[in-house]
């Protein structure tokens, strides 16, 4: 049974702040939103699993944790790419007289 304080804080923050984040995201409409949501969810799951691995299935859950971060990074990259593309186009459009 090994876990650190930061992992417990992260778990707490994920559980408390994620619903607030979901509320905030409901008001936003932007390209890549689904990718960004999946990426955040994967990272949040990774943070939860980080705590869980100290209690059960340490090896398997450690693998899941790293897989979640990998998925979070890739999905976040796709989401950021789509957002950047749209935002640059909108920015150029806004600059045009």
């Amino acid at each position: 049974m090994t876990y650190s304080e930061s992992e417990i804080i992260n778990l707490f923050l994920v559980l408390v702040l994620s619903p607030m984040l979901a509320v905030g995201l409901r008001e936003l409409r932007f390209p890549g939103k689904v990718w960004s949501e999946i990426g955040f969810s994967a990272i949040a799951l990774g943070l939860v699993v980080t705590v869980l691995e100290g209690f059960v299935f340490p090896d398997a859950l450690n693998l899941v944790e790293h897989a979640c971060y990998a998925a979070g990074g890739i999905c976040g990259a796709v989401g950021a790419y789509l957002l950047a593309k749209d935002a640059r186009r909108a920015y150029r459009g806004a600059e045009r007289p």
Partner: peptide, 12 residues
Amino acid sequence: FDILAFLGFGAA
């Protein structure tokens, strides 16, 4: 997974 995560967050 760590390499993929590194590349993904780098791209993000």
